[in-house]
Design a protein around this nucleic acid. Structure first.
Lengths: 160, 160
DNA sequence: CTTAGTGCAAAACATTTGCATCGGT
DNA sequence: ACCGATGCAAATGTTTTGCACTAAG
């Protein structure tokens, strides 16, 4: 989609991601196990969000059946090297999503359906810049979730 | 503090909050039990955030010892009538905070200490307005958490 | 060969639920 | 007296941990 850079195709992206993960593992003295790469591959096959349970069930079918313990372990590694992000929508369990070369975005959660929309607003960057100055901090990341409901589309105008 | 309106003092605020809760309970056919008001009182004694476990332990000492089940139940009611808000910082359990006549604000979580700073930026309102228009939704609430770390104060500039 | 990584099962933890009892109304 | 609210304990769902075994380096 739109986050592909000039003619890159998916497999090239994935090859790059795999290389980054491999480099990360080497540089940090972690072993390059087949389970870890199988998980990376599966994680990067998802377009949207996924939870650990879904991932676990899918991987049970695949070539490498990994335990939940390994899933959590590997997801931690992938978050550490910035290939995956974790989200907490509402109160239920964590959701994950790949994030390499994916445009930074935030989420609108629709109350009725639980559906998740994505958006990107430059003003959030401005807010972060302001905060860095005011509090003398270095912002590492943020999480902005908007909880909303679909408007009853009765009138063509807007009624705020 | 700054959210007190023209000469109001704390007890007046609390009396008002109690009145609102009472009205809410009546209008929705809920019973006015002493436990519920004891919880409300304790909740409004906190200036910042608290978690259920802390609340439980404090209330064990007090006049009304309430069970966790009742705490969760009552916190739900308090959220329903907009006297309390729930937050999810990072991965651990939920944090709550009173919200009546408290200025809407968001949070900076410092990675090292877990300390939570509060801020209020008008641009978040603008973002919400834009989203309502773009997606034709009605925003109910939002959650913006900034994860940061204190900057190494090497430069002689201001560090407040 | 060494020891990090793995699967498994148990543990930990926060929250919810079932049920007998209590107490607002 | 009715039935909603409570306390307790068991159940739930998710994530973590201990341990014996496997395999990467």
């Amino acid at each position: 989609m739109s986050y592909l850079r000039h003619g890159m195709v998916k497999d090239q992206i994935y090859a790059q991601v795999e290389g980054l993960f491999e480099a990360y593992l080497e540089q940090n003295g972690h072993r390059k196990t087949p389970e870890r790469f199988a998980i990376l591959s599966q994680v990067y096959s998802y377009e949207g969000h996924f939870d650990v349970d879904t991932l676990y069930e899918v991987m049970e079918q695949g070539e490498y059946r990994v335990s939940r313990a390994t899933l959590y372990n590997t997801l931690d590694l992938l978050m550490d090297c910035n290939l995956v992000r974790r989200h907490q929508f509402g109160d239920q369990g964590a959701q994950y999503e790949k994030c390499h070369r994916v445009k930074q975005h935030d989420h609108v959660i629709l109350a009725d359906t639980g559906e998740v929309l994505e958006f990107c607003d430059p003003r959030i960057q401005q807010i972060k810049a302001t905060l860095e100055e005011i509090f003398d901090i270095e912002v590492m990341h943020h999480s902005l979730n908007i909880y909303a409901r679909k408007r009853a589309t009765t009138n063509p105008k807007h009624e705020s």
